[in-house]
């Protein structure tokens, strides 16, 4: 594990009576993609912006790249890249013009033409900002966050509003950034995204960190069950399944059977029981527990509630 690039200790942030961040502590290490997931209003943006130095915490200390956010603002701004959840530019500024301008704010900027190319915006170089599609705007803001070749990149919901293809492209890009030795802190609503992309994930709810670990460890700690799902014609006698060691529960509804269970060899035993019982079954698949289940277990409700 790399050295700590972000250290948060006892962070508290209040807005009037509301405690938006309720005493959280965590570190982010060099070279990792650190994810923060949680529902609307969990406090993700507030956390990120306290770390960036754009909001002032009420309590606690934050260190970023050894500097104090807000205090060492200009030195820190040279080395971090920020993509806001909601961002804006003057409507009539052109894409190329914007990157050229922002490149002039830093002492060691990247070649912005290449950046435009990498983000698939070369054809839009002369287009005014207001004429870009949502996804194109998003990519332009990513380009702005990367123009100083930052050591640490903050992305607040980078894939919200993107189509599946752009979302996948964005994941690839974030992985490339890590491959170049950079650190990424991203927030998301998507458990799939966190699972697929992040080295470590903090699950946040009501201003608290409910759990923080690698996606695999979070899921394993849940000791959640695997589900085997298949279709049958008519109804089957499910006794052959519920007798299998490891199976905890069998549900049958509308020609669909769900077998809950865990343990090694669980899937194999279910399949051989089906074969020997001569039931004609199809469309068999397994559902592994995911971060979605972790969230459910931790908070007692679905992410989307």
């Amino acid at each position: 594990m790399g050295e700590k690039v972000v250290e948060v200790d006892g962070l508290v942030k209040r807005y009037g009576d509301l405690t938006a961040i309720d005493d959280i502590s965590f570190d982010i290490r060099a070279g990792e993609i650190f994810g923060m997931v949680g529902p609307n209003g969990a406090g993700k943006t507030t956390t990120v912006e306290c770390i960036e130095g754009l909001r002032r915490p009420d309590q606690g200390t934050v260190r970023v790249l050894g500097m104090r956010p807000g205090v060492d603002h200009y030195a820190l701004a040279e080395r971090i890249g920020i993509q806001f959840q909601v961002d804006a530019l003057p409507p009539r500024i052109k894409v190329g013009e914007t990157l050229d301008l922002f490149a002039h704010f830093y002492s060691n900027p990247l070649e912005w033409q290449k950046l435009l190319e990498q983000l698939g915006l070369s054809a839009k170089k002369h287009s005014p900002f207001a004429t870009l599609s949502g996804g194109q705007k998003q990519r332009l803001f990513i380009a702005l966050a990367l123009v100083n070749d930052p050591d640490l990149l903050f992305m607040d919901e980078p894939t919200t509003g993107l189509d599946p293809q752009s979302r996948r492209a964005m994941w690839g890009m974030v992985e490339d950034i890590r491959a170049r030795g950079k650190t990424v802190f991203l927030t998301t609503h998507s458990m799939e995204e966190a699972e697929r992309l992040c080295d470590r994930v903090a699950i946040m709810d009501h201003g608290r960190i409910m759990a923080l670990d690698t996606p695999d460890n979070l899921i394993a700690a849940l000791k959640a069950e695997t589900r085997v799902v298949f279709a049958v014609e008519g109804r089957m006698d499910t006794e052959v399944l519920s007798d299998i060691p490891g199976v905890t529960r069998v549900e049958q509804r509308n020609g669909r059977v769900v077998v809950h269970g865990s343990g090694s060899g669980f899937l194999g035993r279910v399949i051989s029981a089906l074969e020997s019982s001569k039931v004609s079954f199809g469309q068999l698949r397994t559902e592994e527990p995911g971060l979605e289940d972790v969230f459910l277990a931790l908070t007692g409700r679905e992410m989307r509630d």
Binding site: Y74, A77, V86, Y106, N148
Partner: peptide, 16 residues
């Protein structure tokens, strides 16, 4: 510019 967040975009950089 302040209202729409354009100034905020500048604030995220070392621009004084």
């Amino acid at each position: 510019r302040r209202e729409t967040g354009v100034l905020r975009r500048f604030r995220a950089t070392p621009l004084r």
